[in-house]
């Protein structure tokens, strides 16, 4: 039975990637080898860095359909302008000017519907790439890479999520930081959300926003406190008052940060880490079954 787990955080740098990469490894070790990792942080995917053995298996380009106005057919009636929610179309009848601004266009297709004169054409505008990697273990990694300057994160993320292997039993989705559309898109499809946070005032502030979001979209979630031992006690107080489950704590370690920085988080696994993630995997297994 397919289960999807999203790893989100609110604040950046709290440990989404650390948890995602480790979970992938330990789910493979203690649960099932039919596990796949999706890097949904399409603006800066980085899960790949931690798998030095990765081999690229396939890649495909993701396009967005952008409308274009055929000036020979356009009657400058401005119907398309009225339909466009995003102010992406400029039509100035007095000077017979009509143009679509691709950087404002969201590819909603409303203008194609609006035009009664067949003057709206469509062309492909590249928004990014999806790459699949074999990681030696499990069913591999899929990552989206957004074109620089494109604002179509959500569209690319949706495509990344669609690409998972049909045989897979567990899909891990490493979400981008924040609480905006890309995070909603990643979480909307998940059966369970792991919120990774750090016990600092910044971590708490952004966690609160993320928890509000999770409640709004009615998703079950639990919190992992990373870098445990730093900061003040406000995080604990908040979680206790709100009755939110802490599913795990990862102690702050400078040595670990140094390993992370060199891309070696899966090379130096010790007993503490092993047992931590084994517990987490078992816990998740119980929750999801």
């Amino acid at each position: 039975m397919l289960k999807k787990i999203a790893i989100a955080s609110g604040k950046g740098g709290t440990g989404k990637t650390t948890v995602s990469v480790n979970l992938y490894y330990f789910i493979h070790k203690y649960w099932t080898d039919k596990v796949q990792l999706l890097d949904c942080d399409v603006e800066e995917p980085n899960d790949l860095i931690f798998f030095p053995e990765a081999r690229e298996k396939s890649f495909n380009v993701v396009n967005q359909q952008v409308p274009k106005i055929d000036n020979s057919k356009c009657t400058y009636c401005r119907d398309c302008v009225e339909y466009c929610e995003f102010n992406a179309i400029v039509v100035i009848p007095t000077v017979k000017f009509a143009e679509v601004n691709a950087s404002l266009c969201h590819s909603c297709g409303a203008c194609l519907h609006a035009c009664k004169h067949g003057a709206m054409l469509e062309y492909d505008h590249k928004i990014g790439e999806i790459k699949k990697f074999d990681l030696g273990i499990g069913l591999g990694l899929i990552q989206g890479e957004l074109e620089i300057g494109s604002s179509m994160q959500t569209m690319l993320i949706k495509d990344v999520i669609k690409e998972y292997n049909p045989e897979t039993e567990i899909v891990l989705m490493d979400a981008p930081p924040g609480t905006s559309c890309p995070v909603v898109t990643t979480s909307a499809d998940a059966d369970f959300i792991l919120l990774v946070t750090e016990p600092t005032p910044f971590g708490l502030h952004d966690l609160q926003l993320t928890i509000e979001l999770m409640r709004e979209i009615h998703k079950p979630f639990a919190v992992i406190i990373n870098k445990d031992g730093i900061g003040d006690g406000s995080m604990e107080k908040y979680l206790e008052a709100e009755d939110i489950e802490i599913i795990g704590r990862i102690a702050f370690s400078k040595e670990y940060a140094a390993n992370y920085a060199t891309g070696k988080i899966l090379n130096n696994l010790d007993e503490t880490q092993d047992s931590f993630y084994r517990n987490l995997v078992m816990n998740l297994k119980e929750k999801l079954n």
Binding site: F86, N87, V90, V91, I92, T94, V95, N101, L104
Partner: peptide, 21 residues
């Protein structure tokens, strides 16, 4: 009219300027 638009306010306002001559 475009002061509070989500995006493209500059584009629409410029369009208006052209229309106004």
């Amino acid at each position: 009219e475009h002061a509070d638009d989500q995006g493209g306010a500059g584009t629409k306002t410029s369009e208006k300027m052209v229309e106004l001559g």
